[in-house]
Simulated assay, not measured.
Amino acid sequence: MDAGRVVLRSRCGTEMLPAFPEIETGAARLPDATAPDGELVVWDTAGRLAFAQLQNRLQRRGAGAVRAAGE
């Protein structure tokens, strides 16, 4: 959170919030100047980490990202 705005960046500084709009909904409840450090992961239906699916999410924006968040 930065001045009431949710900021989501990769370790290289790439803005990632457009690809993961569901993060904004949850993070908006955090106090200002909060800086959680973590890692985004996607699980497949067998319960394994699915890096390819995560990469696919990074390509989606707008309505496509919102649909993917619901899935």
Rank of each mutant, 00 (worst) to 15 (best):
M1D: 08
M1Q: 11
D2V: 10
D2C: 11
D2W: 09
A3E: 15
A3N: 14
G4Q: 09
G4S: 13
G4E: 10
R5A: 15
R5N: 15
R5V: 15
R5L: 14
V6H: 03
V6S: 01
V7L: 15
V7K: 14
L8M: 11
R9M: 14
S10I: 13
R11W: 08
R11G: 07
R11I: 10
C12S: 15
C12F: 09
G13F: 06
G13W: 10
T14I: 13
E15D: 15
M16G: 12
M16C: 14
L17P: 04
L17C: 04
L17E: 05
P18V: 14
P18G: 12
P18R: 08
A19R: 00
A19M: 02
A19C: 00
P21C: 11
E22Y: 07
E22Q: 09
E22F: 04
E24G: 00
E24W: 07
E24Q: 06
T25K: 05
G26Q: 05
G26Y: 06
A27S: 07
A28C: 13
R29N: 05
R29P: 01
R29V: 03
R29S: 05
P31I: 02
P31H: 05
D32K: 00
D32E: 04
A33T: 13
T34K: 03
T34P: 03
A35F: 11
A35C: 11
A35M: 09
P36I: 07
P36D: 07
P36G: 09
D37W: 05
E39Q: 11
V41P: 02
V41L: 05
W43I: 05
W43S: 11
D44C: 01
A46D: 11
A46L: 13
G47T: 03
R48C: 04
R48Q: 02
A50W: 03
F51Y: 02
F51G: 02
F51P: 06
Q53V: 06
Q53K: 08
Q53L: 05
Q53H: 09
L54A: 00
L54R: 04
L54I: 00
Q55F: 12
Q55E: 14
N56D: 15
N56C: 13
N56R: 15
L58P: 02
L58Q: 02
L58E: 01
L58D: 01
Q59M: 14
Q59W: 10
R60H: 00
R60Y: 06
R60W: 01
R61L: 08
R61M: 00
G62W: 05
A63W: 07
G64R: 08
G64L: 09
G64P: 00
A65L: 12
A65D: 07
V66C: 13
R67T: 02
A69R: 02
A69M: 08
G70M: 03
E71Q: 13
E71T: 08
